[in-house]
């Protein structure tokens, strides 16, 4: 599989007096995958995200994106074109007076011609299902809609990778669902590589792979289904468990002979149903 991001021996601290907030991190991201980086507040996951598009540069080690090294001054703009980032607060990211102005802003900055801009604008808005709102003003939008506009602004720049830095944590449950659906479509249908920084494990179980951060270190890596087999470690680093895993563990503890693989509610219902019908 083609590696689109390669992080080697990455360490970072905000200043010499501060301790390292990232310590010897090594991982790669495959092209087209949906990767979640999970950890509690303060585990270093947002700092890591900022290393991935060169917003901050490591003191030790290297970050390579699409073959470019982030610490290479000549390449930094190429890196940022390849990696789009959606941040936490929907209200801090809206710069345009209308939805279409906002999406066009990034393209203007990148010197995209007017004809191409028009085309990409309508395409990007269609992708995030905001085409009916092209002329709307931001204050008329919900948080989820604003985040979708932020995603459209990034999609219009045709990046290879989109990083969601806690992009759903300030949204209501409905807004959260909208964003997860949008991201899934971008990932599955349009083959965009997605890196989601989150502490919402209900969201993370949908991704292809998980990285677990704690105190600036990467402590585990794996597929959601494998990772949630050993739940003690996740608890110990202050992460909650997805609902289905909690339910499954509780039922097992009460003597119901279930497997340790169910991640989604439907799967657990299926398993319970099978168990019950074979009695």
């Amino acid at each position: 599989m083609e590696k689109i991001i390669e992080v080697s021996d990455l360490s970072y601290r905000y200043s010499d007096e501060h301790p390292f907030v990232l310590k010897d991190i090594n991982f790669t991201v495959n092209k087209g995958e949906w990767l979640s980086i999970v950890g509690h507040n303060g585990s270093g996951k947002s700092t890591l995200a900022k290393c991935l598009n060169g917003l901050i540069l490591p003191q030790k080690g290297t970050v390579k994106v699409g073959g470019y090294t982030t610490s290479d001054e000549e390449a930094i703009w190429e890196v940022r074109r390849l990696v789009g980032m959606v941040f936490q607060n929907p209200d801090n990211q809206f710069v345009g007076a209308t939805v279409q102005d906002d999406v066009a802003f990034g393209m203007e900055n990148h010197g995209v011609s007017r004809e191409v801009m028009k085309e990409r604008l309508s395409e990007a808005l269609r992708l995030v299902k905001m085409d009916d709102f092209a002329k709307s003003e931001p204050y008329r939008l919900s948080g989820g809609q604003k985040q979708r506009v932020a995603i459209a602004g990034i999609v219009a720049l045709q990046p290879l990778i989109i990083i969601m830095d806690e992009a759903t944590s300030m949204l209501d449950p409905e807004g959260r669902k909208e964003i997860i659906q949008t991201v899934r479509a971008l990932n599955k249908k349009h083959h965009l590589t997605v890196i989601s920084i989150t502490h919402d494990l209900e969201e993370a179980i949908h991704s292809d792979r998980l990285l677990v951060m704690n105190e600036g270190k990467m402590i585990r890596e794996g597929k959601p289904r494998d990772l949630f087999k050993s739940t003690d470690l996740l608890r110990k680093v202050g992460l909650d468990l997805p609902f289905t895993v909690k339910m499954r563990n509780e039922l097992r503890a009460k003597g119901v002979p279930l497997s340790d693989t169910a991640l989604f509610q439907e799967e657990l219902v299926d398993e319970l149903w099978t168990l019950h019908s074979s009695k």
């Binding site: 509690h40 507040n41 936490q88 806690e166 944590s169 300030m170 502490h199 202050g238 992460l239």
Partner: peptide
């Protein structure tokens, strides 16, 4: 609890 992690 908006924006807090599960433990918080």
């Amino acid at each position: 609890t908006a924006g807090l992690d599960p433990m918080g």
